[in-house]
Amino acid sequence: MEQQHTQDISYLNRVLQFYPFDILDIHLIESRSGRTTWEVKTNEGEKILKQAQMKPRRMLFIAGAHDHLYKNGLAITPIHKTSSGAICLGAKDFSYVLYDKVAGNEMIYYNKDQMKKIFAFAAQFHISSKGYVPASESKKRSRLDKWHKLYRWKLQELAGNKQLAQSYPEDEFSKLFLMYADKMLERGQNALRALDNGQYEQWTKNSIEERSYCQQDFTLARFTEIDGNPFMRELHSITYDLPSRDLRILLNKLMKKLSVWDTDLAVELLSSYEAVNPLTPDQYKVLWADLEFPYLFCSIIHKYYLSQKRSWGNEKYIWALQNIIAVEDSKEQFLHQYREIVSSIKEGKGGE
């Protein structure tokens, strides 16, 4: 074990020698899901070195976006360039970035004031993302103009899992799933049809022209609170897509934790976003379509029939499905109040 540790440190020192810092100490922080991070003490303060199992060209796309946000004034940690000016390093299937370590207070989903600030931050993130021109060698990623294909694929999988569930008549999870399968398939088809009304196509064209992107996995794990405001500790990934994708992910993630769709809270959070980066009524229609699509339901069904959560027993799977059904059922009132809610958001009445 000691020999392995020595080899690791030797390897890390070879990576860090490309940076213009004197390395005083290296400490492993975390290693999971193809990503490993170390705390690095240098003559110019503490840094974070992240190793990701991804092609260097892909990391170049993300690191360039990180630097773009920083230069545009977003509250995000500075990313460091090597002595020769490279924004990241790579070798075969691994890539490395180095940025400042920042310390602050934890941000949690159950703190409404913090969540309102996160939605305002998301708005600033989307504004700051505009105009990004990645390096020519970058491996870009885009979901723009691919929503129809994604919806259809997920609906086909859900329909296939419905057939699979029918072959397990005594399975409690399958019985619960089948009670809601047709309803969720209908919701997904409604969302798919809503994309054909023109608003999605126009917003997609605008986003392509603006060269804007979204984070695609907006999570509080990447944030800390400094002086009462959100600060992004790292940029995990990005993709060219509509800002509404980040809003949908954030809202779904929060409401799943609350086990119910809180319409008043959703209005307050979207009002915080609107105050910084206003959306048009047509753009809100696209968000409504994406919120109507049963992503959460599709996800738990996918996990169950592929046995992705090996540590979960049947009770936990059933609990998770019941939780998501409660969220999706209570979301329907919100979805049916598009005009009233958007009017309230546009008039700045969120939270009143």
Rank of each mutant, 00 (worst) to 15 (best):
K162L: 13
L16Q: 02
K47C: 12
H68T: 13
A63I: 02
S174C: 14
G198I: 07
T36G: 10
R248F: 04
D329P: 05
G313T: 07
D262C: 00
I76R: 05
H68W: 10
S136Y: 02
K71A: 15
V276S: 04
K303E: 08
Q333W: 05
K130M: 03
D217S: 14
A91D: 15
N252P: 04
K50I: 09
Y109P: 01
I341S: 07
G198P: 09
Y180I: 10
L150G: 06
N206G: 06
A191R: 03
V276R: 02
V133C: 08
D290F: 07
E170N: 05
D196A: 15
L144M: 04
T36H: 05
V327I: 00
L247K: 01
L269R: 06
Y99Q: 15
H68G: 11
S31D: 13
L164M: 11
R248A: 07
L185E: 15
I208H: 11
V286M: 10
G228M: 03
F61S: 14
M232I: 14
Q166I: 11
A275T: 01
L258Q: 05
P20H: 06
W312R: 07
K55M: 14
L291T: 04
E209C: 08
A63L: 15
D113P: 09
H68V: 12
K101A: 15
T219W: 09
P281S: 12
V102E: 14
E137N: 06
F293N: 05
Y305P: 01
L89D: 01
E201Y: 10
S84R: 12
R57K: 15
D196V: 15
K71M: 13
